[in-house]
C-alpha cells in the first residue's frame, strides 16, 4: 500500500498528522512530508483514519 498526496488539494491542515504522526509531518515550510510513503501493516489503521479525516481529501491509499 502506498500513500499518494494531491499537492493541489493539500492545504497543510495537519489532520493527517493528528492521526498518524509517525507517517505524516507538516514541515517548517508548511509543506506536508510523508515520512513513510509505504506504511507498514501496523501503521495502516492510523493511515486509513488520516486519509479519511483529511479535510481537503488530498490523500489516497493505493495498491
Amino acid at each position: 500500500m502506498r500513500i499518494e498526496v494531491d499537492r493541489d488539494l493539500c492545504a497543510s491542515t495537519g489532520g493527517c498528522e493528528a492521526f498518524a504522526p509517525d507517517v505524516f509531518e507538516i514541515a517548517d515550510d508548511g509543506e506536508l512530508v510523508v515520512l513513510r510513503s509505504e506504511p507498514g501493516e501496523a501503521d495502516l489503521p492510523d493511515v486509513r483514519n488520516a486519509v479519511q479525516a483529511c479535510p481537503t481529501r488530498a490523500l489516497r491509499l493505493v495498491g
Partner: peptide, 15 residues
C-alpha cells in the same frame, strides 16, 4: 489563501 495558510500551518499542527 494557500500561501498564508502554509505559513501558519506548522504552528498549528498536532506536533
Amino acid at each position: 489563501h494557500a500561501k498564508i495558510r502554509r505559513i501558519v500551518a506548522k504552528t498549528f499542527t498536532p506536533r
